[in-house]
Design a protein around this nucleic acid. Structure first.
Length: 648
RNA sequence: GCCGAUGUAGCUCAGAGGUAGAGCACUUCCUUGGUAAGGAAGAGGUCACGGGUUCAAUUCCCGUCAUCGGCUCCA
């Protein structure tokens, strides 16, 4: 110890002197007791440390509570250790994989050995967890040599921990022990289990060890914990609320789409209501693309197998795809179209091109079919037949950046039009360690990757870079959005491809009358109509903007006297292009209002004797209520701006 | 594809080894009602499908299919 003094600086930039060897907790106490009671973990020189760690050098300190991200993740990480202890107590002899905190809670991967993992008693685990927490367990950190670490887990016969230790360097290994449970762990942890007041085991799922499907599948227990019971109640309530936004539920309720076993797994059928949403989005995109100089084409739903052999898709995905379609002639095979690009390459080849024609933007709302793994199918977000708002931009290498920027503008406009303000931009690059996943030479990849990075920089968009997420033929920029349960989905995408034009031997004549190969940019702002609409539904909870609403208005007659008047009102709305109908049912007005609200019809036009005699309608706005009496013309002009997409 | 759960009327769900129930929706009748459910009656199901155990299976067991939660994958 000695009497050495150290300088500790705080987030407010103040600096204080302390005895070397003081702990973060003691520092916190020196500031205020209430702070000391609240804090869960500290950062010292940007490393997260236990509050009990002795500090022996100058540095900056920051305290974390439940209210910040670091505090939460430490809280949950510690909870994972407690859960492991609880589960081990109930099911002795089990082995542990990893148990990290995640965005909402934590999990632990467990090999249940001889215990039947399908018979796990969730409520027993929950009880044991809470009982462990209330016994105020401390998390003791100890540094161990690699040899000792190996010895400990050999004795415990836990090959997963041994594998983890194998990749660690001697001298950097730490254990944490609380109660009866010791775990290999980098830490840090919260001071004591008593902070944890509520716990819920959310679900049980299989997960491959180290995320590799060739490895054994462990049982993953997902759970969440909180420092207060009310916080858990709130969280569970929020989950319930989120489930109400589920596009599969709303899709059924609003009769937007459905799946039929007879038609086939993952093959969605759009019902009339859903078709209206889809059609209006397509029209919107169609006109936006026309403004940006795209040329629209239509190609068939199948293509000769040769087409995909040429493109390379057959080699890459052939075996896991819908298999070739046989025809009476032996030498002829066709594939259901999994991609539009080969067709568009053929469009390009239709005639020779001059550099003056580039960039050439070929667009198509093309329906494609991919044999997705059965376990992967998920409502409309992952299906086997879907329509892409696809286009392929053929351009020179020098035009790539400008084109990518123009596409980004288009995607951002689409997102803004539909109030998708919470999206993530991801630049997906190749995994340089593993070239086997990609085709094409490294230099061209570098150029393409740089073009994408620079485009994003020029637009000033915040983006995350993910290595190893590129397509096999090139890097891409993806626009990711979350669904109601926080699952992330890729919507818009921009991909640079130097390979396909080569494979199809595409050329243009440059200024010097020389043949050159164009670059291909694949792009889809919605991504797929199915997925986009699924996410849109979850965002607006089925309350579509007026221009997309399957039914925009409904006329509700109060009694039989006004039925003809109601019909006339309805006809005049339909004349103006509105999607409207009359509720002729022999029901009370409150019932008609309720049903229209449940169907999420934006405008209810209530007509009774009063309205008929004054030639007006009483307008009720969905969820808002009565907004007063007015003439049909006044109503129409009041909603006019909401009917057009171009004003958005 | 893998692990686990689930599958009962159009929808949401209850139920039990002895051959099915509710609410909503639907049909008919009564009611003509002013902004989120007026009343009555009726009609609706090979209890996902295929095997097995049993005197008896929708219920228990096995398989298949589909759906749900994850994992892996995602041109």
């Amino acid at each position: 110890m000695g009497n050495k003094l150290i300088n500790i600086s705080f987030p407010d930039l103040s600096v204080k002197e302390y005895q070397s060897g003081i702990t973060s907790m003691e520092i916190a106490k020196s500031i205020s007791n209430s702070l000391a009671k609240k804090i869960l973990v500290a950062s010292f020189n940007n490393d997260h440390v236990d509050l009990s760690r002795k500090l022996t050098c100058d540095g900056s300190i920051k305290f974390h509570t439940w209210d910040d991200k670091e505090g939460k993740s430490t809280f949950w990480h510690s909870s994972a250790h407690i859960m492991a202890e609880a589960v081990e107590k109930l099911y002795p002899g089990i082995k542990f994989g990893i148990g990290p905190s995640i965005e909402n809670g934590f999990y632990y991967d467990i090999d249940f050995q001889d215990h039947d993992s399908s018979k796990i008693d969730i409520s027993k685990i929950e009880k044991e967890f809470i009982s462990l927490c209330s016994s105020n367990l401390f998390f003791d950190r100890s540094e161990v040599s690699k040899e000792d670490a190996v010895r400990y887990f050999k004795e415990k016969d836990d090959e997963y921990k041994l594998e983890l230790i194998d990749s660690l360097e001697d001298g950097s290994i730490t254990f944490y022990k609380q109660g009866e449970f010791t775990d290999l762990c980098r830490g840090p942890h919260i001071p004591s289990s008593k902070f944890i007041k509520s716990f819920k085991l959310l679900n049980v799922a299989g997960a491959y060890w180290r995320g590799n499907e060739n490895n054994k599948q462990l049982t993953r227990l997902y759970a969440i914990s909180f420092p207060k019971q009310e916080l858990l109640d709130d969280y569970l309530l929020k989950l319930e609320e989120a489930k109400k936004r589920d596009h599969r539920k709303i899709g059924k309720e609003l009769e937007l789409f459905f799946f039929s076993d007879k038609v086939g797994q993952g093959l969605p059928i759009w019902l009339p209501n859903g078709h209206i949403v889809r059609e209006n989005l397509i029209n919107f995109m169609y006109s936006e693309q026309k403004k940006q100089g795209y040329k629209h084409v239509t190609s068939p739903h199948i293509g000769s197998k040769d087409l995909y052999v040429t493109s390379g898709h057959y080699e890459k995905y052939g075996e896991s795809s819908f298999q070739p379609i046989q025809v009476p002639s032996d030498n002829d095979e066709y594939l259901l179209k999994p991609m539009n690009c080969p067709h568009h390459c053929e469009v390009y080849r239709f005639k020779p091109h001059s550099y003056k024609e580039l960039p050439l933007r070929i667009a198509e709302f093309g329906t494609v079919y991919r044999y997705e793994q059965s376990g992967e199918l998920h409502g409309m977000t992952r299906v086997r037949g879907f329509t892409q708002d696809d286009a392929h931009i053929f351009c020179t290498i020098d035009q790539v950046k400008d084109e990518v920027i123009a596409v980004m503008d288009l995607i951002l406009k689409v997102f803004k039009s539909l109030s998708f303000d919470n999206f993530k931009v991801q630049i997906s690059l190749r995994d340089k360690e593993d070239n086997s996943k990609y085709i094409g030479d490294g230099k061209l990849w570098d150029r393409a990757e740089n073009d994408l990075i620079e485009s994003v920089e020029e637009k000033g968009i915040e983006a995350v870079v993910e290595y190893g997420e590129a397509a096999f033929y090139g890097p891409k920029i993806d626009f990711m959005v979350r669904d109601s349960l926080e699952r992330e989905w890729q919507l818009g995408t921009i991909q640079v491809d130097y390979q396909l034009p080569k494979r199809f031997d595409l050329k243009y004549i440059d200024k010097n009358n020389e043949k050159k190969t164009p670059v291909l940019i694949h792009r889809a702002p919605f991504g797929s109509m199915e997925r986009f609409i699924a996410i849109l539904i979850e965002h607006c909870e089925g309350n579509f903007p007026l221009w997309l609403a399957p039914q925009q208005a409904i006329v509700l007659p109060i009694n039989d006297n006004v039925v003809t008047y109601a019909e006339n009102i309805n006809n005049s709305l339909i004349d103006k292009g509105l999607r409207s109908s009359v509720d002729f049912r022999n029901e009370k007005i409150s019932k008609k209002v309720r049903d229209a609200e449940l169907k999420k019809v934006p405008y209810m036009l209530i007509v009774g004797d009063n309205e008929m005699s004054s030639n007006t309608i009483s307008v009720r706005k969905k969820t808002k209520g009565d907004i007063g009496k007015m003439s049909v013309n006044d109503f129409l002009s009041s909603i006019k701006t909401n009917l057009s997409t171009s004003t958005k």
